[in-house]
């Protein structure tokens, strides 16, 4: 990545993430919300590319943008009652939520800005991260990798139990 334009691209992607994220939780048409969620997830993939995390970026696009978002849109289209009808996403707690969010962002910006981060600049980012990630998942992190498959099994059983009609 050309380092001259990288910061501008980062701000562009971040801006899109924040704006589309806000639209997801404020728009009244749930279908539009889903579309902006796709945009939001896409921009996050862009940030991953800027960070040199090519594998994570590809996974982000394939899984989140591809599978999960499409599944959501399917669910909306197949649920006759919700698509096209405006749904109020806010309740009386909006002012408290805004105050909390602003306070959290302010504290986070102040705190993280003041911290001296342990950044290493002499480490070369590998051209291809897929192999490194695959190696780690099969060696150091093999235990969490295997547990995730059990988590998926548990979620699958749970989803069937909840969804099944007696």
């Amino acid at each position: 990545m050309d380092s001259a334009i990288a910061p501008y691209l980062f701000y562009l992607f971040s801006f899109v993430v924040v704006v589309s994220g806000l639209l997801v939780v404020t728009l009244r048409d749930i279908f539009h919300c889903a579309l902006f969620l796709i945009l939001c997830l896409f921009s996050v993939a862009g940030i991953y590319v800027l960070l040199g995390a090519d594998f994570i970026a590809a996974v982000q696009v394939l899984l989140y943008v591809g599978a999960i978002a499409v599944l959501m849109i399917f669910a909306i289209m197949l649920t006759a009652k919700v698509s096209g009808i405006g749904i109020k996403q806010q309740n009386e707690q909006v002012p408290i939520a805004i105050i909390t969010t602003v306070a959290f962002v302010a504290i986070a910006l102040y705190g993280l800005g003041k911290t001296i981060w342990n950044i290493k600049t002499d480490v070369a980012i590998p051209d291809n991260t897929t192999m490194a990630i695959g190696k780690l998942l099969m060696t150091t992190y093999v235990v969490p990798f295997e547990i995730v498959s059990v988590v998926l099994l548990a979620a699958l059983i749970g989803a069937i139990v909840i969804a099944r009609r007696n």
């Binding site: 992190y141 969490p144 547990i147 059990v150 988590v151 548990a154 979620a155 749970g158 139990v161």
Partner: peptide, 23 residues
């Protein structure tokens, strides 16, 4: 476990069945 990713994934394995069991 003495590792944070394993800790987090195990915590999810603990709670996801509990969501279903509560309902």
């Amino acid at each position: 476990t003495l590792e944070l990713i394993t800790l987090y994934v195990s915590l999810e394995l603990t709670t996801i069945p509990l969501f279903v069991l509560a309902a």
